[in-house]
Amino acid sequence: MTQLIDYILGGAGSGMIIALMALALVLTWRATRVVNFAQVGQAMFTTFIALSLQTLTGSWWVALLGALVAGAVVGVVVQYLVLRPVKRMDTSGAIIATFGVLIALQAAAGMIWGGDSQAYPQPFNNTALTVFGREWPISAYDLVVIGFGVALVIGLTLLFTRTNLGLAMRATAFNPEVARLSGVRVSRTLTIGWALAGIVGALAGVLVAPVSGISPNSFDILLVFAFTAAVIGGLDSLIGAVSVGIGTGLILSVVSGYSDSSNAPVVALILLALNLALKPEGIFGHNSARSV
């Protein structure tokens, strides 16, 4: 029993990272009805930028800030150059285009920084915490990750419910025509949505890198986990993405604990398949996954 609790707690940090990446996917989906499969590629790229900044300045915080700025910029560039022109086309075109971006970003990162996995500095203590005379499977770094995640979710909730920009973004997501007729600058709002998603993805990248290392392909698996969480959460729902993301992390941690971490992708696939078969609109969503 204690072992189960340990396994569950051990998944909290990675769960938050999955939640953040799922959140990024949901933000672009809400903005433009595109699942940005290049999101992890963007996060990988900005994490490499952060690593370079880290080497240059020696400051983890400067590197983080750089990654967030770069995340916004890359998000805007991808949306502006690729998805905006493709908007009028079939959905297949948009999906394929995001994979094209993913392939190009990974290759570009390989060219610049090489293909080998590199270590990302660990800014906080990553050893198990001892509280009440017992070792817990959570480190100070896990708490930092969770803290960042919680702060971000609170910030986004305030943005969406309390500000005009947030209202404009929600209106644009649900009914772009009415938003335009109300005077919302829709294309600018969509671009801001992508920038926001880029920032959230970049944060997830920098937070996961000390644990996973960073290489051009090192976030691919995160894409699968995050997509699974986003879809089960309903793709439209910020709350859904976050809670299911964390839940996915906990489940995968338990699975890895009792068997082997290489089973995690298979388990994620089973979760995704079950969800799409039984409740395709997700737990928190209202838009339909099914076409026919």
């Binding site: 994620a268 398949a273 799409l276």
Partner: peptide, 22 residues
């Protein structure tokens, strides 16, 4: 997968591409 809309199908098959070889 056949009943799923584009992005859902792409994501599911992405999971298959990663999960099956594993």
């Amino acid at each position: 997968g056949a009943r799923l809309r584009g992005p859902y199908l792409a994501g599911l098959t992405l999971g298959i591409a990663v999960g099956i070889p594993a």
